[in-house]
Simulated scan of single mutants.
Amino acid sequence: MTFWKKASLFMTTALLALCLAVPAFAAGLTVKTSSISEDVVNVAVPYIAGSRGGSEVDDKVNGAVFDVIDGQLEALLPAADRPAFKASHDKGGTTSSRLAYHKELVKFTSDSVRKANSEVKTAASWYVRSEYEIKSASPRFLSLIQKTTTYLGGAHDNVVWTTENYDLATGNPVTLEDLFDPAADYKTRLTTLIGWQQTGVARLKQHMTGRAGAVVKPVQVTGNELFYVDKERNLGLVFNPGEIAPVSEGVILYDLSLNDFADLIKL
């Protein structure tokens, strides 16, 4: 039986009594925050306890979540410093060891960024900030967005969002394809829904401002898109700045109602 069927509640008969993979927030799962501020680096990262799969799954998921943000921080270090830091700090396999590694990495990255900033002439201070948003959470499923903004000189800061979705019975990542019936042509459906949104938004902007907005590339869903599932069991697709529109347009989100693809989900 799939995690969709195990995790969800029956919808009303008016909605054909369909069930989904993502339950609303439920008792049993705890989402905690590792919030560390070290001068120019400020990072908040979630970690969990009480998953359906127990403490081993908690550690597995927390390790994966920290891998995302720690990977971003490590990428900011000078190439010569990365091996030395990794050699002297052990990530380990438990949540406590990952918390300790992350804390030391944030401090090391802050020192590195501050030092690099002091060696260049710039009026603006460099910084790294990261926060998260839980889109849905239960003992069976977790969906979140990690939002990171960095400024290391140049004309503007850099914004990167990453989405993460986990089956909390196994600790395995959930892909977009996992949400749908194997025979369903979900890519075509989602592509069509996003196309309608793009057309509607462009029309409204033209009407409200009297001029055409920024050019947004048509989206052809491949299954590799960043996505989340919210607590109302709707689907969101995320495109980072510059991916389908000019960087100045920022992060672009397409929120898709369950009602528009419920006939395709995996039961």
Rank of each mutant, 00 (worst) to 15 (best):
N240H: 07
T209Y: 09
G213I: 14
L152P: 06
S130L: 01
W196P: 05
N224P: 06
S138H: 10
T222A: 03
N240L: 12
V45P: 00
K103E: 13
T162W: 02
D70R: 00
V159Y: 07
G50N: 13
R114S: 11
G93Y: 10
V106Y: 03
Q146N: 13
T170L: 01
G54T: 12
N117C: 10
S112M: 10
R211E: 12
G28P: 01
K115L: 15
F180M: 15
H207Q: 15
A7H: 03
G154C: 09
G153S: 14
T2M: 08
A212I: 11
P173T: 11
S248K: 15
P241G: 14
D157R: 12
T209V: 01
K86C: 04
F66V: 10
E131W: 04
P173W: 10
A214V: 15
K5Q: 08
S96H: 06
D90R: 15
D58L: 03
A169K: 00
R211N: 15
K217I: 13
K187D: 04
L73I: 06
K91Q: 11
A75K: 12
Y254H: 14
L15R: 13
L267H: 11
A49I: 02
W126Y: 11
A14Y: 13
K135I: 03
V128P: 00
K135V: 03
K147C: 01
W4R: 04
T162Q: 12
A183T: 15
S112H: 04
T33A: 14
D70Y: 02
V219K: 08
T2P: 08
R129Q: 14
T188L: 04
V65N: 09
T163R: 01
S118W: 00
F10G: 12
F25A: 13
S136D: 12
A17C: 06
L99V: 06
G195W: 05
Q197M: 12
E249K: 08
T162S: 06
V113Q: 02
F85I: 03
S97P: 12
N259G: 10
G28A: 10
T95A: 07
S35R: 10
D181R: 13
K60V: 10
V41H: 02
V221C: 05
A49F: 00
I145V: 14
D58Q: 13
Y186C: 08
G154A: 06
V160D: 06
V57R: 00
T222Y: 01
E225Q: 01
V45W: 05
D260A: 12
M208A: 06
D39P: 05
T209C: 06
R98F: 01
L99H: 00
K121Q: 13
